[in-house]
Amino acid sequence: MLNQTLARVVAIIDTLTEYLGKIISWFTLVLVCLTFAVVLLRYGFEIGSVALQESVLYFHAAVILLGAGYTLKHDDHVRVDIFYQNFSDKSKALVNLIGAVLLLLPVCIFIFYVSIDYVLLSWQILEKSQEPGGLPLVFINKSLVLALVGTLVLQGIAEIARNLLVCLPAKKGVN
């Protein structure tokens, strides 16, 4: 029963993360096009646009901060695996479980704690760019920090459940 529940939690969160990751992946194409436009306008036509330059920064932040959960799901995050690469699947699951519980979740809680006032203040004043011609959406950009926490915690829960499924012995049916 526990195994089925954990498997269902993993499936739901993984589906959500996968969907978000596919959406965010399109942001990279937008990012490249915007960067190309900034360079073309500046060096080809001597036209500068602060809003266009800031939109590049916004999309860059979105790709990194919203894509972190997707990266975690696909195990593409930075890992020093001198010993890990030779571990059994169960040992790897145990290391991942300990890492998620003792490192990932506490770091997410810390990031949330230190950034919540920063983001809320930005929303209270509806913070805008200080640059003339800049985007009036700084408060939304700052909210991506909290979105990072949300996506990482959610995927962290899935990783904990996934690794528990590997570490816990499967219960056999009673005849």
Rank of each mutant, 00 (worst) to 15 (best):
V63K: 01
S115A: 11
P106A: 04
V63T: 06
F83S: 08
F59A: 10
T15F: 11
D89Q: 09
N86Q: 14
L57H: 08
L120C: 11
G44H: 09
V107N: 07
V30K: 04
I64F: 12
V101L: 14
K90Y: 00
V63P: 03
F36R: 10
I116N: 07
L40R: 12
Y113A: 11
R79K: 13
V119L: 03
V38D: 01
S122I: 02
V114T: 10
L34D: 02
L94V: 08
L94R: 06
Q124K: 15
V95L: 10
Y113F: 12
V95K: 03
L102S: 12
L29Y: 15
I82G: 10
N96T: 04
L121P: 10
V39S: 02
L121M: 14
K22V: 12
K22S: 13
K90I: 06
E46L: 15
V78C: 08
L104W: 00
Y118I: 02
L66Y: 03
F83E: 08
I24Y: 00
F45E: 09
L94A: 08
F112P: 00
F110M: 05
H74K: 09
F36E: 09
I98F: 12
L66D: 02
L57D: 06
Y113P: 05
L66S: 07
L16D: 04
F110Q: 06
